[in-house]
Design a protein around this nucleic acid. Structure first.
Length: 538
RNA sequence: GCGAACGUAGCUCAGUUGGUUAGAGCGUCGGAUUGUGGCUCCGAAGGUCGGUGGUUCGAAUCCACCCGUUCGUACCA
């Protein structure tokens, strides 16, 4: 019963950060997911699924020094007082699943999973509290070949959903390189954990804040336009120059492809120390020793000695190996090395990757939009080991399906082929509903989407209006006339609309019956399917 | 979380220095037209002016707080 009491009427409202999905969204996203799934299948990955809810400790999300889950994750207590949480990504549940079934899995275990994840954070445009991710992971492979494969598969996935080559780039970095540099400038120990996090966050903001913004964040801090002050890492000038070396050093241009070579979009040139460093684009297998030595020398010029730094050394050689694998597989134009990629702050232990869209579009409101990251991943060798037992090497990545869909929508590549509506069987004579139902059934049995008009049939015009709004390709009409003669009228709504364009007078419009023709009832299916074919071809 | 802007019908918006009964366009619904979509015409429904409290003879308008949206920033495990 509808409530007449307006004041206390229940208000229909959706919690912020959540969204309803309509038919067009669902169809478009299903199609995207299918395209992604096909890529993973082709690489030999198998599907897997875990539930939405895990024990909070399995997600690793307790506040330090408190027995309550971290904010940012939706949590509640079970009837036995144990904390449960909605998953906030698909990687932690995977680690749990692998640890729990370790004996039974064939290693390396290659799997993919898609699903909703939940984050209790401030939502915004394109940022939801429930969204879709689609992950692929290889567990039990320590080789960087597994990481290189991930990076290449990411490129394939982005292309599979309709982003063109050159409109995206997969950036690859190695956490060991970042760690090595931080170690070299003296913030390596456990007591500097916080500082390291601040440094990583600062580097992560290169795209948005530019070199100077990053520099400020590494030092004392930065005040934004609103006057809000963000405290920096408090590094010395020397330390800052060491970190900035990562972003400036021309040896990375050594990894970079020729900037004149089209097809890859790059970020704004970074001006630094006389180096015009355009784009961190990797192409040919570089000489790791030369790059390494060059970078060490660059640091040395700034008073930083990193010559015995294992992290840096390993990081460089891993990056080099990845670059070689990528080049020999022919992906060098799609996958690049970029020392500013940070990705997540906690569990990554080695190579990290990020898929970025590089084109700009305008949204419905005409505002310029750059989508940026639509997916990311990396190596997380410690995650499975948290559940006891030895560390298990693992690498994987995640595609942000919802964000990718938003990007495709702006590109006009999503949902532009709207599903045709059903054929509508109209009701001319309400005593004969059963006959009309049978017509609909006959069409369905032939595989044609069809429905019987179920509204009030008294005004035939309403039925036509309904069919029109449903995007019906045609309607089937059978009044007593037609029934007596064993025929049906088929009215092609698309054709009718075209023909009617010239008709201005309503009486003429109705008498003309544009697009309408008559066939014997037993030829209805054939006639309708011919019509559908005609429309599909047009 | 911090800062700012905004909040009037389903949507987009008008609403005078605080002054009768808050308007328009689009959309919705009904009718002209119960055997034919669009166009046209006629009519109707739809508002606690985001909420609460305050100032005032009087508040959509001024003030405070709250909620929501947007932008920037932080956070994003």
């Amino acid at each position: 019963m509808a409530s007449k009491d307006k004041k206390n009427r229940l208000k229909a409202r959706l919690p912020r950060g959540f969204a309803d999905r309509d038919a067009a969204d669902i169809r478009a996203i299903d199609k995207m997911m299918e395209a992604i799934r096909a890529v993973y299948d082709r690489y030999g990955f198998d599907p897997a699924e875990t539930p939405f809810i895990e024990y909070t400790d399995a997600l690793g999300k307790f506040l330090p020094d408190q027995d309550r889950p971290n904010e940012g994750v939706f949590s509640f207590q079970d009837d036995d007082e144990q904390w449960l949480s909605l998953r906030y990504d698909l990687t932690a549940p995977l680690a749990r699943q692998v640890a729990e079934n370790f004996q039974d899995l064939v290693k390396p275990y290659r799997s993919y999973r898609a699903g909703w994840v939940f984050r209790n954070e401030k939502p915004g445009p394109g940022r939801f509290r429930q969204f879709l991710q689609f992950d692929a992971d290889t567990v039990g492979a320590a080789s960087v070949a597994a990481d290189a494969e991930m990076a290449m598969m990411m490129a394939d996935v982005v292309e599979a959903v309709g982003i063109e080559r050159g409109d995206y780039v997969i950036r690859v970095n190695n956490r060991k390189v970042l760690d090595g540099v931080m170690e070299a400038i003296g913030i390596g120990g456990p007591e500097h954990l916080h500082t390291r996090l601040v440094v990583l966050r600062a580097i992560d903001k290169l795209d948005r804040l530019g070199v100077e913004g990053v520099r400020l964040l590494l030092g004392k801090g930065r005040k934004d336009e609103s006057g809000d002050f963000t405290p920096g890492a408090g590094l010395s000038q020397k330390q800052i120059s060491g970190v900035m070396a990562l972003l400036e050093f021309e040896a990375f241009a050594f990894f970079a492809r020729d900037a004149d070579d089209g097809g890859v979009v790059r970020r704004e040139p970074i001006q630094a120390a006389g180096v015009d460093h355009t784009g961190q684009i990797y192409t040919k297998p570089p000489d790791p020793n030369a790059a390494m030595l060059g970078f060490l020398g660059y640091l040395k010029d700034r008073g930083i000695d990193a010559s015995n730094n294992d992290s840096l050394n390993t990081g460089f050689s891993e990056l080099n190996e990845i670059a070689s694998l990528i080049a020999s597989a022919g992906y060098e134009r799609r996958v690049v090395i970029d020392p500013s990629v940070v990705r997540g702050l906690e569990y990554y232990t080695g190579p990290v990757f990020e898929a970025d869209l590089t084109f700009e579009t305008v949204n419905e409101k005409g505002q310029k939009v750059v989508f940026g990251s639509v997916g990311g991943g990396g190596r997380y060798d410690g995650l499975v080991g948290r559940f006891g037992g030895v560390d298990v090497p693992a690498t994987g990545f995640s595609i942000g399906v919802s964000r990718l869909a938003a990007a495709l929508k702006n590109l006009g590549k999503l949902g532009d082929e709207a599903e045709a509506g059903p054929v509508v069987v109209t009701v001319m004579d309400r005593e004969r509903i059963a006959d009309y139902q049978k017509l609909a059934t006959t069409l369905r049995e032939a595989g044609i989407r069809a429905e019987l008009y179920l509204g009030n049939p008294k005004n035939f015009g309403k039925q036509m209006q309904y069919a029109d709004r449903r995007d019906a390709p045609c309607v089937v009409i059978q009044g007593s006339d037609e029934r007596d003669r064993g025929v049906v009228q088929i009215k092609d709504l698309v054709e009718g609309k075209k023909k009617a364009a010239a008709i201005a007078d309503n009486v003429e419009w109705r008498e003309e019956r544009p697009g309408q023709f008559e066939v014997p009832e037993r030829e209805m299916v054939q006639a309708v399917s011919d019509l559908l074919k005609r429309q599909a071809g047009a």
